[in-house]
Design a protein around this nucleic acid. Structure first.
Length: 639
DNA sequence: ATAGGGTTAG
């Protein structure tokens, strides 16, 4: 009898999978695992309360001869929360063969349906709910509203909502949120206006709606109207700014939050870290790191993941590894995946693959994004065979259906390595229709390998889907320019002007004393750029003296050589580096973040600067990291 | 013994 009590209290104090295993051994010995209540608690502990123990929960569950509703519900809940909606569904189906589902079952399984975004499944579950008379239950109704909204059936969400026999604030909030998620701000505002009662969540839902729609200014006004803002309101703003590339505002709101004494929570911290990560704000990231340690956030996995990602996107993969290895809390799939992605971005493909294997050994199940990261590692290192192996492994070993992103990685894998026709045939054989990104990837590969014929063909498919992408025009124009086909270049240019497409301006950012400086190609003259231009001139002179010849084939027009040279010499990354060289002390690593991909000339110049000035430059471009040192780059000129 | 809506990293 008191074995039972002991078991219960032991379970309550479990904090990790290892603890669980000990309790399991104890329960096994004392035969308590046959007690359904204890067994239920045990599953709850593994599947819901403890992270990374869902596999263990399932194995335990399978050994039980007649699981009860509670056990099924708990396992379904665990699967729904662990982004394996498919497994939640199989469990639910199995349960329905043996037992009657209750309102809890529906609440959990509908969440999984929402997660899997499968409208058909959602409808079927709705029908089943009716059959059991549970569709009128408030909780079930509320999840139905969210599910339909999430699956793109806003009208259905509305209908369920209107027909609910009883509606509380939570149901209203779900409806407002549904409209927001469906991108219908007007509808959301209307429902919000009709609400009989509003709680703080209602305001926060609406606020998040504005932010997600990119309506940053409206959100700022709305934020001021919230009667009593809480941590969620603040973090919604911070996250919103970060997602809409308003990094300075994200930093500002975070500081303001500190100043007025509002406690930061994990979301505001991950939000501000994400702003750092996107902007490459290494110095500010270090301050946040210190703050985390001081205020105990190091125990929270999500915050650690964000920090790890920030360090690796700031080009400091060593710090990222340190965070990863020393994380006091449990590592999640996201931790492992971020680390794999971080290594991949820096070109450490072997290490990335080793980590992937370690993760499998550790007993964690890689998900779709883990595979994207490891495929990315392969494509950026030219490891074709390995890439193919992972691609088949995800289906065969883990039953993960490849998404369009995975196919994109494969196209990139073949394309980057110059196997353009293999890439092309791969696209034609894909079981899902290719999107613009797929074709654009191949177009990029055509550009790297100078294949005009294929590029023209690819362009046709691409322009049918997305005719107004300026980047595609520029890419095609560059392919012609590289081959000296100036007439074709001119015609692309003409179609760009007639369509009023502007070249997406290249910018680069660099942090000096926690301030981000942003440089735009060819931009003239203010106090800051003046300084950069002067220094750049001096650098170029010195490099030419050392034997450097400008490479201008990545430039659009058919202009005189000096003019072309002038255009590349003003690329934003050169300005940022020059500026950094005047402002940062000797011996400091120069960290630059660029929004586009680096051109051949800039790449060459960076290598030379690193050699001539004995200086390390870390450049993050749109697709990867380049670490320049002693005249060499970590990408081994493969990018 | 369990639950529905809001902010969170890859």
């Amino acid at each position: 009898m008191h074995g039972e009590h002991l078991c219960k209290s032991l379970l309550k104090s479990c904090k990790s999978l290892n603890c669980i295993k000990q309790v399991h051994a104890f329960a096994y010995k004392t035969a308590l695992k046959n007690d359904p209540v204890i067994a239920g608690e045990f599953i709850l502990c593994c599947a819901v309360l403890i992270t990374n123990a869902i596999e263990y929960a399932q194995r335990f569950f399978l050994e039980i001869t007649q699981p009860d509703v509670f056990m099924y519900n708990t396992l379904i809940r665990g699967f729904s929360d662990s982004n394996s909606p498919q497994r939640a569904l199989t469990t639910f189906v199995e349960m329905c063969r043996n037992l009657n589902p209750d309102s809890y079952s529906f609440a959990f399984i509908l969440k999984a349906a929402a997660l899997s975004r499968c409208f058909r499944t959602g409808v079927q579950l709705h029908c089943m709910g009716m059959k059991y008379g549970l569709d009128t239950h408030v909780f079930v109704g509320t999840t139905l509203v969210s599910m339909y909204a999430e699956c793109g059936g806003l009208e259905f969400a509305r209908k369920v909502f209107d027909e609910m026999p009883e509606r509380n604030v939570v149901a209203w909030n779900a409806m407002v949120n549904g409209f927001c998620r469906g991108g219908e701000l007007k509808g959301a505002e209307e429902v919000f206006g009709l609400m009989p009662v509003r709680d703080l969540d209602s305001w926060n839902v609406m606020l998040a709606g504005y932010v997600k729609a990119g309506e940053v200014e409206v959100a700022e006004k709305f934020f001021l109207e919230i009667p009593e803002k809480d941590g969620v309101s603040w973090s919604t703003m911070i996250v919103g700014f970060a997602q809409n590339c308003c990094f300075d505002s994200a930093f500002g709101y975070f500081r303001e939050m500190q100043r007025i004494g509002m406690r930061s929570n994990e979301a505001s911290l991950t939000g501000v870290l994400s702003a750092c990560s996107q902007a490459g704000a290494f110095e500010f990231a270090k301050i946040l790191h210190a703050f985390m340690e001081k205020s105990g956030f190091v125990w929270i996995t999500s915050v650690n993941n964000a920090l790890l990602d920030t360090y690796s996107r700031c080009g400091n993969v060593c710090m990222a590894l340190l965070i990863f290895e020393r994380m006091p809390g449990e590592k999640s799939v996201i931790s492992w995946t971020s680390m794999i992605a971080g290594l991949a971005m820096q070109g450490y493909a072997e290490k990335a693959m080793a980590l992937f294997m370690e993760m499998e050994v550790f007993g964690l199940r890689p998900d779709g994004i883990t595979f994207i990261s490891v495929l990315y590692a392969c494509s950026h290192a030219g490891l074709i065979e390995e890439g193919c192996r992972y691609f088949s492994k995800m289906k065969e070993k883990y039953g993960l259906e490849p998404t369009i992103e995975h196919y994109g990685c494969m196209v990139d894998l073949y394309g980057r390595a110059g196997q353009l026709h293999k890439a092309y045939n791969f696209i034609l054989q894909m079981p899902i229709p290719p999107n613009a990104i797929i074709w654009r990837t191949l177009l990029g590969a055509c550009s790297i390998h100078g294949n005009i014929e294929l590029a023209v063909q690819v362009r046709k498919s691409l322009y049918e889907m997305d005719p107004n992408n300026s980047g595609d025009h520029v890419l095609l124009s560059n392919i012609y320019a590289a081959a000296g086909k100036w007439k074709d270049v001119a015609s692309v240019r003409k179609s760009m002007t007639s369509k009023k497409l502007n070249k997406n301006p290249g910018w680069s950012m660099l942090e000096v004393d926690k301030v981000m400086y942003r440089f735009v190609a060819g931009e003239r003259r203010n106090k800051i750029t003046e300084e950069a231009y002067d220094k750049l001139e001096e650098i170029m002179l010195k490099l030419k003296f050392e034997g450097y010849i400008p490479e201008s084939r990545g430039v659009l027009h058919d202009v005189e050589d000096e003019e072309k040279e002038d255009a590349v010499s003003k690329h934003s990354e050169k300005l940022a580096v020059a500026f950094g060289m005047t402002r940062l002390c000797k011996g400091r690593v120069l960290r630059v973040v660029k929004n586009l991909r680096v051109c051949t000339d800039c790449h060459m110049v960076m290598k030379l600067i690193s050699k001539v000035y004995k200086l390390e430059i870390v450049l993050r471009d749109r697709s990867r990291f380049h670490s320049f040192k002693d005249g060499l780059c970590s990408c081994k000129d493969y990018w």
